[in-house]
Design a protein around this nucleic acid. Structure first.
Lengths: 216, 216
DNA sequence: CCCTCTCCTTAACGCTGTTAAGTAGCTCCG
DNA sequence: CGGAGCTACTTAACAGCGTTAAGGAGAGGG
């Protein structure tokens, strides 16, 4: 058969392939056997490169982070508001790039300390803008946690942009909610136009940071 | 043997037992066989009451919500700020009450529409305070998503209050972060005193709502 | 030529969620 | 009073999962 000799795998290539596969099959379908098949290899081969599946997921999360950093242009001259907007829009976009992206990301830990660079950069920008270090950390973390929560819920309803998970029929929902008019009306809006709602929530967080820490 | 005849199960009793077991074994250890054993029943019996495991998890999330509502005293005379504080503190406390509580909660859907009551109540309070319905929905949702994101991360580090997951050695972290002094110092603080940090982030969100929507 | 190291295969294990088929006990109907 | 039918389970089995143990092919160095 194929006398072609494959290049040996490495952690990065495995994580790459796994991320591509993730979009096709989702987190539930992302089995070691399926990943191995994609790499033209048997499942136990993966254990040469990763001590267990979680380690592979960690590498995937790290790779997601790398791509987010690469895909998010950060201007050193940003105001702290710009920076928060850019960074969190970039994070959301990165997570939305993968089916169950938020789940994979928030269920994993980075494999290295590459994330320390951008973080240091952000903290420097914020402290230079007048925040104490504790305030800077709280501001960045709060926005980060909001974004993570937002995308997690978003992907629960809408696994990939354009697709919609079943069980979210708006007509039936309206009927059940007949006795709760405000909820019915609010809900009809909540489950649509995630882009706008994300921006609005992010603006709330940023506004709160400015107001509470007296920095503008 | 025991001639004692068991009471037939029902969805509620199963969810009850599963929630108790969750705290002992965690989400990974929460198998249908383990739950069944606890109920003195074989695993397939659960399929009489739930169409699949996800339906059981949904019931668990719903039960968590019920207990949260029952455990959170909501004063009708609350200002909207008080309400946001109370509701989100209550949510966090409820989620922290179970190992992997945030994961179970955010990975599931409510089985009924019991949640519509409290939601209607909140929306009414907010619109009465001068918010438009869209603003009210955005305010409540943003705070909710922040809390969910917060507790998800919190339980990633600290599965149950008092316990600490391995791999979060602060000394080693400090050594690796030697080249990133701000991150090192911020991180040392971030991974401790979650109560205080949660309050601070929540205050930021609430402050932002007041500032942006011009309601106080 | 053999030893060693790297990177993978084959085989197997215990466990998982889930389905199919059968059954004990209760209730209701003729 | 007997059987039909429903409820709530059991037993048995299946495919697929993550993971481990053992072994082997190929390259490189002494």
């Amino acid at each position: 058969m194929s006398t072609e000799r494959r290049e040996p795998l490495d952690r990065r290539r495995v994580a790459d392939t796994a991320l591509r596969l993730l979009n096709e099959v989702g987190l539930d379908g992302l089995t070691l056997r399926a990943i191995a098949r994609e790499l033209d290899v048997k499942a136990p081969a993966l254990y040469w490169h990763f001590k267990d599946k979680q380690a592979l997921l960690d590498e995937m999360a790290t790779e997601m982070y790398r791509r987010m950093v690469a895909g998010t242009a950060l201007d050193p001259a940003d105001t702290w508001q710009d920076r928060l907007l850019r960074a969190n829009r970039g994070l959301r976009a990165a997570l939305l790039g993968y089916r169950d992206g938020a789940k994979v990301f928030s269920g994993s830990r980075f494999t290295g300390i590459e994330h320390a660079g951008p973080m240091e950069d952000n903290l420097r920008l914020f402290t230079a803008a007048g925040f104490t270090l504790a305030q800077a950390a709280r501001a960045l973390t709060t926005a980060y946690l909001y974004t993570l929560g937002f995308v997690t819920e978003e992907q629960g309803v809408q696994p990939l942009p354009g697709e919609r998970r079943e069980g979210y029929d708006m007509d039936e929902r309206a009927r059940l909610m007949a006795d709760f008019p405000l909820s019915a009306q609010a809900g009809a809006e909540i489950f649509e136009d995630y882009d706008r709602h994300f921006e609005e929530g992010l603006a709330l967080v940023i506004g709160g940071i400015g107001a509470r820490y007296g920095v503008s």
